[in-house]
Design a protein around this nucleic acid. Structure first.
Length: 935
RNA sequence: GCUCAGAUGGUGGAACUGGUAGACACGCAGGACUUAAAAUCCUGUGACCUUAAAAGUCGUGCGGGUUCGAUUCCCGCUCUGAGUACCA
């Protein structure tokens, strides 16, 4: 029979499902291998052709690893809490659980059609109570923990209480809030339970804090920094404003250094690591205290000094002013009456500027003098105190020392306001033109450190400042604690209730705290989150629950552990399962998660490790980012008449220059190789059913542009259509054939025929002219074995380095060669089936069975062993070049040594012709590669 | 501005360690089969010049360099894409 992909694919997909062929067992006799895809949010639009790209690659890898004798865990699930389902619920009243379920069913149907070897018995859905019970449980562990800087890890909060009992707060070294109290054990003993609770909250890994948040009124929620792009929400593009709010936060900053160091131990793409490094933003420097010069006017200020962070403490003698962020809390108190108007005017002006303006406008220098002065702790000099919006309240201490000679922004500021520019290093040049940030040379004009070099000065000053209690060496991180909550319905409820304004956890045995039913999915009339609508939803009938829900990243920050033991009712995953599977060996997903999901997951993983629940410091050993599939839009060109009106005439792409035209999107599914299918076009756009077409070479050619894949651009290609026409095996191979996995590329269906033809040709190898199955049991010929072993080696090399596109080409070459050789040999074809099976599993299963094997045994067959002996050649066609230009090829025995090759080449008549009688100055012979004659 | 990735025929791409650039596929052209079309099969296909054929010249974004030899290594530049943005 001809290649009947529809029947074959249906048959084997059913077989795999019924026989649970890919169910992973905890098998200690085989080495484990964990291949994970970033699980999808099941959106209403279903899968387009870009989604499965990474899944196909990971599936090929999983199937290949099984053939190589590994016990492979390859699961799939859904990140099913999220905003789109809730937006839809607001519009339609439909419960998000229902739409989510429907979307998941669509996804599942589409995924099943592609023939993935997922172990569906381990499926997870983050929105199911059986799953989010454990997300809530992890939240509880975070609430019950603090970060001990002495042991360098998170610990149970009871160890902190023990310290308070034994020795008070003095020698506690913790990552905590800034306003922690200093107390003795006796003070702690006399505190009320509420006071204790309040104090402990300042240490917990998750805690409540009043913070300025990115509030998005249109979405009715708070967004994380990485969900905001240029002042607009990433999803939906709504405006975002700053608002103060009580929020749950996660002390991810405690892990800043470990998150940074861990990057050196994992095999991830360098750009992703770099993005995480930037996000963490470590800078090494010093904090320095500048005492405030007290006057009658600023006497009321509740601070004696202003602390700044600097990475260039060595330039402290060049400080000519200090700047506070306009939002800094001390600004009002430090403004003198004379400057009041200027300062307040400046603050008002800053507030008016949107985030966007402030970023775009980095050239203009602005600021205002407060009228107060501070004292340089090292030089004793009197320094004016300014405010300016180039200083950010959220970074460091919100205060900066201005060193015009070493920092370009400071230089611009000083030049603009005519403040002194003091040279501090003899190597600094052209200070009248710009700042010179060099660290070379010896210090000048720098009192104590004159004559020192950079490193000496840094060491000396850090020590000096510490001795005088005026500062110290300090490491600063840009990364802030992560806000953990949103004012939304469709998320995990936070397992917390409030008593007298203080948060308490519910009991562990009360988990899961179920998401209550509400009448509509909007904030309450009083502006509370939607959960405020749930009637009678109180803890023990009297205490109010936390009304915000967890953010999108909660459920995805630990899901890879759940797959290890997905049905466990007692634990998030058993110790035995975690000990066996340990970590993810290969993780494939999009680069857009570089600073969100991947950072939060590493954070929770480290936390769970500190508490002894998991084994590995890093969860994802190897990461691959698949490239984005962009849309490829097609256009038709409508002729515009003199009045500027559109006519009923459409002109082909190549001739459009002769007319005035406007381009219209046309559905890419009715265009093949840029040729428009005119009858289908008339159905697609009924207003053009009588249109005239100006053709070139009898065809209407469309224009092409690369854009985002979206419905409105008519460039969405649905995998279902391709599977219908060509089958899943063709789709799988074509997606790989498109180019390197990690490269972004526009989707283009033009070449898919070639892959389909290849599979037919492959099928035909096993059949005679009448399409009857026909293989022979003869002894394979040398040439056949050579073709086979070439592909055995090529595919294993390619898969190990994630170069899937090159394998597809090599399969084509192998099948072309074997067809040429009229190979019908069972032994050769059987091995070829195994080698191809990870790419095109359905056709291979069918042929495997026709070859006489038990159904389904192919998935666990052994990958053929490569034998280099079959590739050994005895002759090689040496390219002979003269002065680097290839002139001819000479067939020579590979047994010849360099000297003999040289002789043979020089003896050749044709070579002599090119030498024109001259003797070569030099002859380069690389055995088995090339001969080059230098004349 | 900074960081990273990239630039190869009409198109997607290959060339893995410096050794025959353009594999494989699409498209296109010509042919076979067919009443015809589709499907299938065969041949050709980087550009230029010339030809009956051969030969020749140029050619991996641009300009240099190292080398017997560079798509590959080094220096400078242009362009495209992604990320990031007053981080002290």
């Amino acid at each position: 029979m001809d290649y009947q992909f529809k029947e074959i694919e249906k048959k084997w997909q059913e077989f795999w499902a019924q026989n649970q062929t890919f169910k992973a067992e905890q098998n200690t006799s085989k080495p484990k291998f964990y291949v994970l895809d970033m699980f999808p949010y099941p959106s209403g639009a279903g899968l387009h052709v870009g989604h499965p790209l990474g899944y196909i690659a990971s599936d090929i890898f999983s199937r290949y690893k099984r053939l190589k004798g590994f016990n492979v865990l390859h699961p799939m699930g859904y990140d099913s809490f999220g905003l789109p389902a809730e937006q839809y619920a607001i519009q339609t009243g439909q419960h998000p659980a229902i739409t989510t379920e429907a979307n998941i069913n669509t996804y599942r149907r589409q995924l099943d059609q592609i023939g993935f070897s997922f172990d569906w018995s381990r499926e997870v859905r983050t929105s199911e109570a059986g799953y989010y019970k454990w997300t809530q449980w992890i939240f509880m562990q975070l609430f019950n923990s603090w970060y001990n800087l002495e042991t360098g890890r998170a610990e149970d909060i009871t160890t902190l209480i023990e310290k308070f009992n034994a020795s008070g707060s003095a020698d506690v070294k913790a990552v905590c809030d800034e306003d922690t109290k200093v107390f003795l054990p006796s003070d702690w003993a006399t505190m009320s339970p509420e006071e204790k609770q309040k104090e402990l909250l300042k240490y917990r890994m998750t805690y409540l804090k009043e913070s300025t948040v990115n509030w998005c009124p249109a979405l009715g929620t708070v967004l994380a920094n990485d969900e905001v792009k240029d002042g607009f929400s990433e999803r939906g593009g709504y405006p975002v404003e700053q608002k103060k709010m009580m929020q749950w936060s996660m002390r991810i900053s405690a892990y800043a250094e470990r998150l940074l160091q861990g990057l050196n131990t994992i095999d991830w793409p360098e750009p992703v690591k770099e993005m995480q490094r930037n996000w963490i933003g470590k800078s090494v420097g010093a904090s320095v205290k500048f005492n405030i010069e007290k006057t009658a006017e600023n006497a009321g200020v509740p601070a004696n000094y202003i602390e700044v962070f600097t990475t260039r403490v060595d330039t402290i003698f060049g400080v000519s002013y200090l700047v506070l962020a306009p939002e800094h809390e001390l600004v009002a108190g430090l403004t003198s009456p004379e400057q009041k108007e200027a300062v307040e005017g400046y603050i008002a002006q800053t507030k008016k500027k949107s985030e966007l303006d402030r970023m775009a406008d980095t050239k203009t220098v602005s600021g205002a003098f407060t009228g107060s002065y501070v004292v340089n702790p090292v030089s004793g000099e009197r320094i004016p105190l300014w405010i300016a919006d180039y200083v950010l309240a959220g970074y460091g201490t919100g205060a900066v020392m201005g060193v015009p000679s070493g920092d370009q922004r400071d230089w611009a500021f000083a030049t603009h306001f005519q403040l002194p520019i003091v040279q501090v290093l003899d190597a600094q040049q052209n200070l009248e033109l710009q700042a010179d940030p060099t660290k070379e040379g010896k210090y000048v004009n720098s009192g104590l450190i004159n004559g020192m070099n950079y490193q000496e000065a840094i060491n000396f000053l850090n020590q000096w400042l510490e001795d005088k209690q005026a500062g110290k060496a300090k490491i600063n991180y840009r990364m802030r604690d992560a806000i953990f909550g949103r004012q939304r319905y469709w998320g995990e409820p936070i397992p917390v209730y409030f008593k007298d304004g203080l948060p308490y956890l519910i009991k562990e045995e009360e988990l899961p705290l179920l998401l209550p039913e509400i009448d509509k999915y909007l904030p309450t009339e009083t502006g509370e989150p939607p959960l405020g609508r749930a009637e009678g939803w109180n803890y023990e009938d009297k205490y109010e629950y936390e009304l915000s829900t967890m953010p999108g990243w909660a459920g995805s920050s630990w899901y890879w552990y759940r797959y290890m033991d997905a049905r466990n009712q007692e634990e998030f995953a058993s110790w035995e399962a975690i000990e066996y599977w340990k970590d993810v060996d290969l993780y494939i997903g999009g680069a857009e998660h570089a600073t969100g999901h991947l950072l939060y997951s590493r954070f929770w993983n480290k936390f769970l490790k500190d508490l002894g629940y998991v084994q590995e410091e890093e969860p994802f050993k190897k990461l691959i980012n698949q490239g984005m599939i962009q849309g490829r839009s097609n256009f038709v060109y409508r002729v515009i008449d003199e009045q500027g009106r559109g006519t009923n005439t459409l002109v082909s792409h190549g001739l459009r220059g002769n007319y005035k035209t406007s381009a219209l999107h046309v559905d890419v599914n009715i265009v093949e190789n840029e040729v428009l299918n005119i009858p289908k076009f008339k159905l697609f756009r009924p207003e053009f059913k009588d249109a005239e077409f100006i053709l070139e070479n009898g065809k209407y050619l469309c224009g092409v542009e690369v854009e985002k894949m979206s419905k409105s651009k008519f460039n969405v290609v649905n995998p279902d259509v391709l599977i219908e026409n060509y089958g899943a095996d063709t789709l799988r191979m074509y997606e790989m054939f498109l180019g390197p996995l990690e490269q972004s590329k526009p989707w283009n269906t033009n070449g898919i025929e070639g892959v389909f033809k290849f599979l037919r040709k492959f099928w035909r190898l096993f059949h005679n002219e009448a399409w009857e199955f026909n293989v022979t049991d003869t002894i394979p010929h040398k040439t056949e074995l050579k073709a086979l072993h070439k592909i055995i080696k090529k595919v294993q090399d390619d898969i190990e380095r994630f170069s899937f596109n090159t394998s597809v080409s090599s399969f084509m070459i192998a099948v072309n060669e074997l067809t040429e050789l009229k190979c019908k040999n069972r032994q050769v074809l059987e091995d070829l089936v195994i080698v191809l099976s990870s790419y095109a599993p359905h056709i291979c299963e069918e042929l495997w069975m026709l070859l006489g094997h038990d159904a389904g045994t192919l998935s666990y067959a052994a990958y053929p062993v490569f034998n280099p002996a079959y590739l050994v050649e005895d002759e090689f066609s040496y390219p002979v070049s003269v002065n680097g230009k290839t002139r001819l090829n000479l067939n020579l025995s590979l047994a010849l040594e360099a000297k003999e090759i040289e002789e043979a080449v020089l003896a050749d008549e044709q070579v002599q012709k090119y030498l024109e009688g001259k003797t070569p100055k030099k002859v380069i012979v690389v055995k088995g590669r090339i001969v080059n004659l230098v004349v």
